[in-house]
Design a protein around this nucleic acid. Structure first.
Lengths: 158, 158
DNA sequence: CACGATTCAGTTGTGCACAACTAAATGGCG
DNA sequence: CGCCATTTAGTTGTGCACAACTGAATCGTG
């Protein structure tokens, strides 16, 4: 399809590389998820639920909107997830008195207490990865840069 | 809770770091997914469907089992996904004659032809990330190392 | 050959991600 | 004040991930 001099000589190669990088990121995310799944089972939390609890432990009560900003998740994901955490007795949801549109999400006694048991999770994860703190932080920095670039590209219409 | 000399002085800090690394990886995976979603919309593929097509373009016809090994996905994920690709007219599924348990997945004419249009995807992704090929490859290597460590840990019981 | 263990695809049920939408409350502007 | 645009949660529908299971085919061993 390219009689004279192949204007895109590396396209085939790029498709192969794309397969590799796509797969790597996808697999890494799922592998991470899998290890957390095992460790979090003891706490009765899924990985996304753990992320929500981490924010609540750190920030205290805050509206769904703010929670979504911290986690880059919208109400379509958070609403059912928070309902499940509420059913589990870990969080409390109540309409804000000042702004009836808003719902404040806070910890119950039980939810706050769960933090004690969660303290050992990071150590177990670190030992599972076998990575040093510096390596983890370096990887995190690169991933954040990647995410920023991707978000910017998505906004500008890919 | 720790009157004499705090045997775990860094646990609180680790919980904060865990929030950061969890969030970074989770966000990166979703941001990547989002950019691919936009670009793949033209091809009528989702990101996981694109991964399947990449394998088929590279490897040709192969059983569901092998496909799953390449992608680390099981039949619970692949079966419905492949049905959708079949409905879209991109792949063909048929029971192996040699082994009636196995289902061979292959490309249709249309599926094979789609490869031409997919050739530009990696370039668009690369420009979206703004990363150089070397950087991508370096990141990929680290992610693969992480995945290997996590898989090994998962097998040994976390 | 027979029969129990294994392999393979598919199904079911739960949970997350996200787009598109609804409904209620709020805020701004004429 | 009255009305409309915006903000905020929530709902609906589609698709993926994975655990647990089913059922059919195959294999191994006696």
């Amino acid at each position: 399809m390219n009689r004279t001099g192949t204007p895109h000589p590396h396209q085939e190669e790029w498709l192969r590389l794309d397969r590799q990088i796509c797969f790597s990121l996808h697999a890494a995310a799922r592998a991470f998820n899998g290890v957390y799944r095992v460790i979090l089972k003891d706490l009765g939390l899924t990985y996304p639920q753990y992320l929500v609890m981490l924010v609540l432990w750190e920030q205290g009560t805050l509206p769904v909107k703010k929670l979504g900003e911290h986690l880059r998740l919208d109400s379509g994901t958070l609403s059912p997830l928070l309902k499940r955490l509420e059913s589990a007795g870990l969080v409390r949801r109540e309409r804000s008195a000042r702004d009836e549109r808003s719902v404040e999400v806070g910890l119950t006694e039980e939810g706050a207490a769960l933090r004690e048991r969660a303290l050992e999770v990071p150590r177990r994860i670190a030992s599972a990865t076998g990575f040093e703190v510096d390596e983890i932080n370096d990887l995190r920095t690169r991933l954040d840069a990647l995410t920023s670039a991707l978000d910017a590209a998505a906004l500008s219409g890919a």
